[in-house]
Amino acid sequence: MRFRAPKNSFKAEKKANKALSHIAVNNIDRPDPQKTQKKRLVKDLAARRFMFGLTLLPGFLVFLILFGLLWKARAILAVKPLGRLLLSTTWKPSQGEFGMLPFLAGTLAVTVVAMVIAAPISLLAAVYLAEYAPRRMRNAVRPLIDLLAGLPSVVYGVWGVLMVVPLVERASRLFGTSSSGYSILAGGIVLAIMVFPTIIHVSLEVFSSVSRDLRDAALSLGATRWEVAKKVVLRKSSQGIVAAVVLGLSRAFGETMAVLMVVGNIPRVPKSLFDPGYPLPALLANNYGEMMSVPLYDSALMLAALVLLVVVLAFNVAARLFLSRVERRAT
């Protein structure tokens, strides 16, 4: 470890000693270590209690959001059974039909497409940046990736309508179907681009935590750089990679504006990549303003938000279980 002492520490200390020297004549006049010690302990305890209180807040917030959504959703749960709501495919609020299956299917479809596109590409790019790229390139590219993360989703949406939708439309003709371009595929592509920075950023952090020694050892045994990446870095950071992908997944589930502008918004279960879909966040964003009007509609939308939250929760739980199993196998 390279230790760099703060500048001028010696001089400062000398100065302080000089200033106090006329006060502290002998040991008796220096601050009593016992009292300072107690004061420090008290500070520590108080800080610990305070921080603990703050730490409980996120958990509290999750419960608050869940509870708030559940509270607002109880109106419709009182009228219709949950099973029917989740499995029915008719969405006609003014007739009292609130089937959410098309939205669940749409959400899953768009997210799966996005992850299938984003995960391999992001990981490959991250491996390249971590293992192959010269440091200058890495330092130049990292802010660009962060910039991608900072672009507002409205911009992604507009760009998606301009570039991705016509692309998908042309592609659909190649595949024999005719699509307007507003489709699950378009939504998935836009979402994938939005998820790139998340996965790359977290993966880079994880890769950098793999110690050089391991890499050097493998290289010295004659491995090619790709083999080092595959068998050493990826394997060692597999947990972190899963975490990165899950994070990207969570982001993909929750992204609203950009997807809704390109996905077609038809409440039907999509049967192909070129079919339009209707993910849950889009449902919320499109209809939020109407919530005040029809009370059952209001609570149906809150139920949709709750369902989305539960789905995200479920994925996170599953990922954690998977990770802990991997961890147990590794140790």
Binding site: Y182, L260, M261, G264, N265, I266, A285, N286
Partner: peptide, 26 residues
């Protein structure tokens, strides 16, 4: 998006916005 234009057009056809078919754009 739930909007006046769609609601009005649907009213012309005797229905509500949710009954309109077609790719829905924002």
């Amino acid at each position: 998006d739930a909007c006046g234009a769609a609601e009005t057009w649907a009213a012309f056809l005797g229905k509500k916005q949710e009954d309109l078919l077609g790719i829905a754009v924002y």
